[in-house]
Design a protein around this nucleic acid. Structure first.
Lengths: 216, 216
DNA sequence: CAATATACTGTTCAAATGAACAGTATGAGT
DNA sequence: ACTCATACTGTTCATTTGAACAGTATATTG
């Protein structure tokens, strides 16, 4: 009977996309008349019918008799859909991370927050995730620029080639983790900084899992 | 005169908190009657008056004559402010964007979604925002690597130096937008690709506003 | 004291809005 | 041929809802 129980027609996709988009752009879902107006329907029943079909198929929810209560149900096929809140973590941006990391994360050091989607970045949400604003060009060889935000995970085991944050001269600095003759070392990715530092002397604060760059 | 121009009375704080909370819990702001009912007001004018005061003081916004359009304005001074409503949008990732961009966004071309926090990236959520997975190393001079996700805004006016996506050989490609003797041109940021293409022959599909890189 | 902001009651109006009813037309499936 | 989902037009109804008007009472301030 329900040959289309899962699939959506092109028109239904359009309507669903408009509703989800409207919700994002206008910060409120559209009324049925607004849906009709957007598509040029001269009857709001047309919009109501589509909404009804989308509800039946599970793509929309609403509260009966309540204005602007349409809600797109989470589904990977809908762009502009508000991501479910569980997936989003607010990652604190530290200017510099003092030695005793996990024990004593002081709010004074937090310079702001970055919200990231853990699915997008492929990280598991954890309180050990943090961000660092990149200073200097010591990692330019890995195409990490000044002003970039590095998302790091504390407590991960670094593998050779990973970018890590280490506390050097009381500043958190990004380096590449390498093994030199079996010994773990840190090196900068810029010929200007040829130093190779034995890692065991340092505290590795986190392994970079993602990078975010704002442009313009 | 306006001795309270910034501060809120206890009652106003309560009302504001209820509205912000209702927005979170019920996924929609309350109507004036719901506000009145919650506080036991026998008249909705009481609720309307409070909302009016909160609007005047800049803590609330609304769209006149629109149902459930109350919005708490982000403000650090509000003790309540649950999760400060970071605005996350799912941006579609296009493998390649065919010529008629805005007209025909086909779902078939969407390869997935990236969730970004618009506040973090400093972009406004718009249906014209999209993401592109970077292919090749033609923009390595700008430290954009293969596999990076470029977040682009369609319809922006590119300024010289901006990274833009253009449709070349039926593929969306990133280039730097420059002006050569007054003429807009596109150039790759890699000595291997010395081409300089006059921009007027091409469709510029978007201006890069942010970059996301997954590591590991 | 007068003016003003707060904090309400009680009522009314009109616009915004969801929902329903009665149709028309098309195409797919049985 | 018959049913059913889709995709609409056109209309009407009832509710929801924002907004306004007319009051009352208290506290604050110049």
């Amino acid at each position: 009977m329900n040959s289309m129980s899962e699939g959506l027609t092109k028109r239904q996709q359009e309507v669903l996309a408009f509703i989800a988009e409207h919700q994002q752009v206008n910060e409120a879902p559209p009324s049925l008349r607004e849906v009709a107006a957007h598509f040029g329907f001269r009857s709001m029943t047309a919009a109501a019918d589509h909404v009804k079909a989308l509800r039946r198929k599970g793509y929309l929810k609403h509260r009966p008799h309540q204005a602007r209560s349409l809600r797109a149900v989470p589904s990977p096929s809908i762009p502009y859909q508000p991501a479910s809140r569980a997936r989003i973590v607010d990652v604190p941006i530290y200017g510099c991370i003092p030695a005793g990391f996990a024990d004593e994360r002081r709010q004074e050091d937090v310079e702001g927050c970055i919200s990231v989607d853990v699915d997008t970045l492929g990280v598991k949400p954890s309180p050990r995730t943090f961000a660092l604003e990149v200073r200097g060009d010591s990692m330019i060889g890995r195409h990490i620029m000044e002003g970039d935000y590095a998302i790091l995970e504390h407590g991960m085991d670094p593998r050779p080639g990973d970018v890590v944050a280490a506390l050097i001269d009381n500043e958190s600095t990004l380096k590449t983790f390498v093994k030199q003759r079996g010994k773990p070392c840190l090196k900068a990715e810029n010929p200007k900084y040829p130093n190779l530092i034995p890692a065991q002397e340092l505290v590795i604060q986190g392994v970079m899992v993602a990078l975010i760059r704002k442009v313009r």
